[in-house]
């Protein structure tokens, strides 16, 4: 696959998969305001996914639509980081995952606004406004839950231990990143991510794990987690079961 196309799909799939995960919370949040806020973030992300997928379909030039790309690709053609496909877990785990992603997403999108590819710059600029709000909210919530009670602290510490090995992949460069020039290298975001994450974890009374081990395989599509297939089975059910129907 063309490196430029693959890079656009990585943006699209991060947004689509995380948006889908967050949408699973709709109607069952811990408090109404959080329910509404999670749905807002999900709506932003799915909207971003649509913009990226429309562009990917154009770049691909094979006559496919954004919906075709969302609903008719199988696991190994998805290019999202593993982090975003992980199950929601409890509310704390969902918000910590969101925070780790947002802490990457905002500076990343800001960097993309300088892309020589005008379309990339345009979608990034629109998305960055939303990402800034997402980061503000997820950071605040992580701090509140880490600091809150003994129980909430313990839950956040457990979520941190689980999620940490999945954060590194967001900022590991691979051949695809190196083979195109529309987007900067993900590793260039590392300093900004570290600064944000260190500050928020400290305020949340959480200890940053020592390990820098990173699970990879999502961005390349080479080895996703088992969770993604189940998500796609649900998400793609109708277009797959009724391939000639439009909705």
């Amino acid at each position: 696959m063309d490196a430029a196309l693959e890079c656009v799909l990585r943006q699209a799939d991060n947004a689509l998969v995380l948006g889908h995960r967050l949408s699973e919370w709709c109607g069952v949040g811990p408090v109404l305001e959080e329910d509404i806020a999670l749905a807002n973030t999900a709506l932003d992300l799915i909207g971003q996914a649509k913009l990226w997928l429309e562009y990917a379909a154009e770049v691909q030039g094979a006559g496919r639509t954004a919906d075709d790309l969302a609903f008719r690709r199988d696991v190994y053609d998805f290019k999202n980081a593993l982090l975003v496909e992980l199950p929601n877990g409890d509310f704390g785990q969902t918000l910590l995952r969101e925070f780790f992603f947002d802490a990457f997403h905002l500076p990343w999108l800001q960097a993309l606004t300088a892309s020589p590819d005008a379309r990339v710059a345009e979608v990034a600029a629109k998305s960055a406004k939303e990402a800034a709000y997402h980061l503000e909210r997820s950071a605040e919530t992580v701090i509140a839950l880490g600091d809150g009670t003994d129980e909430s602290h313990a839950r956040m510490a457990a979520a941190l231990a689980y999620l940490w090995p999945y954060t590194g992949e967001l900022m590991v460069d691979d051949a695809v990143d190196l083979g195109q020039d529309a987007m900067p290298l993900p590793s260039s975001i590392r300093p900004a991510w570290d600064t944000t994450v260190n500050a928020v974890l400290a305020e949340a009374m959480l200890t940053r794990p020592d390990s820098d081990f990173a699970h990879t395989g999502g961005r390349s599509g080479v080895r996703h987690t088992e969770h993604l297939g189940h998500m796609l089975a649900q998400m793609q059910f109708l277009p797959r079961a009724y391939p000639t129907a439009t909705w």
Partner: peptide, 27 residues
């Protein structure tokens, strides 16, 4: 909410999620 994760297109997914979110707002 039972169908949000199975909406058959991106637009339908957004519409349904926004609708169910509206209901939370009504509450």
């Amino acid at each position: 909410g039972n169908w949000i994760t199975r909406a058959p297109s991106l637009e339908r997914k957004v519409n349904l999620l926004a609708k169910v979110q509206d209901e939370a707002g009504h509450g």
